[in-house]
């Protein structure tokens, strides 16, 4: 290292394994194990090159791999969020399913209407009592309410799905 006060770092490396006067600093230093602790050169493990610098670049490559993996996962998550948000514009249907009218398959069977007990003109749907069967036409007993009280038109006719 230019500018360093010249102190031998590794006396063995310079080929001076023989023992001479102990405690003499400079050339002709005794073997390291013969020197007291305070005269030994700097302890091992201290870097002789800049710390952290990785010349081969393997850390950079590994980091790049990890970064790509994490970035991919993040982008996957954001795409999922985009799909979910896109689902906002796909409602279950354009209008509610019909509560009356012909069913996809099955025979029509007229059912006896029943007058609604509620004075308010409630409408009821009669379903013949056949448990478990889904193929049933619903027939409606309708009492058209007074036109003055209807809102949005009198409901009659089949409601389409």
């Amino acid at each position: 290292m230019r500018g360093t006060p010249y102190i031998p770092h590794e006396p063995e490396a310079e080929g001076f394994p023989h023992t001479s006067h102990t405690g003499e600093v400079g050339h002709g230093m005794p073997a390291r194990r013969d020197l007291p602790m305070t005269h030994r050169p700097r302890p091992q493990g201290q870097a002789q090159h800049p710390v952290f610098i990785d010349n081969s670049g393997w850390r950079r490559k590994l980091s790049r791999l990890l970064a790509v993996a994490v970035g991919g996962a993040c982008i996957g998550y954001l795409m999922l969020v985009a799909v979910l948000v896109g689902g906002l514009w796909q409602p279950a249907g354009s209008q509610p399913p019909g509560t009356t009218g012909p069913l996809p398959a099955g025979d029509a069977r007229p059912a006896a209407g029943r007058p609604s007990p509620a004075p308010g003109g409630a409408q009821r749907i009669d379903a013949p009592r056949v448990p478990g069967s889904a193929e049933r036409p619903g027939d409606r007993h309708s009492r058209t309410p007074p036109s003055a009280r209807s809102e949005g038109g009198a409901p009659h006719g089949s409601a389409e799905r």
Binding site: P96, G98, T99, T100, G120, I125, S150, G152, A154, A159
Partner: peptide, 28 residues
């Protein structure tokens, strides 16, 4: 709520510009 919906029936179908209500038959 609008009159046409105020029939006391619990099932409401709002579609095609009109309101239909429905409920369970007797004994159900």
């Amino acid at each position: 709520i609008p009159r046409a919906a105020d029939t006391g029936s619990p099932v409401l179908r709002l579609g095609e510009g009109r309101i239909e209500t429905a409920g369970m038959p007797a004994g159900t």
